[in-house]
Nucleic acid binder design. Structure first.
Lengths: 140, 140
DNA sequence: CAGCATCCGGCGTGATACTG
DNA sequence: CAGTATCACGCCGGATGCTG
């Protein structure tokens, strides 16, 4: 019940509490999850292809991410009992709906990350120490 | 623009590389960041109000989150040199644009988290039990 | 009231080695 | 090829105590 508090101004914009936010972030706030979903968004891939398509991911993280996504019904795992073992992973409809949401997120980031980087650089120049008094003369 | 992309081999669906995704997640993949942005979306608040409005957040995390957001230009910090110190935080336009994006995310989660929870529960019942059908008779 | 410094435990994460 | 198991490390994040 985080929503309705009695402090003066309007409070929480979202009715959901922090536990819910936490759940959301657990699902999509993970680098490898996002990358895996993105890589899979085009179609089904095998384990090794996945690993090759996601630079820097380890077996451990790939397997773990895949398991979580499968458990949540975001993708399907299909193992073929062949002599060279083959396993294919493919997004479900639910998983595809997440692609859209994440893409929106990435779109926002793409649109603003330059601005953010600029702000960050500026504040590091101006705000770091007490030396800012000297700089502010030239900066502002 | 999300899903439809052609793949054949090990290439990414998104042109951006993982470093970029990482940046995005560093910004919005954080529970406290999201909650802080959400709480501030209604208007400016003081430090203590913020802390009271975000259940479970510690000073450390609040301060840290606030600093990061200020550094990135997502919010402004205004300190009043009064005898009882007062500091107000308010979202910038950039910060507000993030609210929209995050709200979309939360909207997705709200629409599907029931489905996800169901899938998870189902796979926990069916997935592990493949090996031991026998124990289910004795255990349950 | 607003904020910082410090200690510390948990676990996310990667590297490596082994199995079916 | 497609994983599983183990270990070691770093960092996140909470609790506490102190300052201006």
């Amino acid at each position: 019940m985080a929503a309705a508090r009695q402090i003066a101004g309007p409070c929480q914009a979202w009715p959901e509490d922090s536990a819910f936010i936490r759940e959301v972030l657990d699902r999509i706030g993970d680098k490898w999850t996002v990358l895996t979903i993105g890589t899979l968004s085009a179609g089904s891939l095998r384990y090794s292809d996945l690993q090759a398509s996601i630079p820097g991911i380890s077996q451990r993280m790939l397997t773990q991410t895949l398991k979580h996504l499968e458990r949540d019904g975001l993708l399907t795992r299909t193992a073929y009992a062949e002599v060279p073992p083959r396993v294919e992973y493919e997004l479900t409809d639910l998983g595809r709906s997440l692609v859209d949401a994440v893409t929106a997120m990435v779109g926002w980031a793409a649109a603003h990350h330059g601005e953010i980087a600029g702000n960050r650089a500026a504040s590091e120049l101006a705000g770091v120490g007490r030396a800012r008094a000297a700089i502010s003369a030239s900066a502002d």
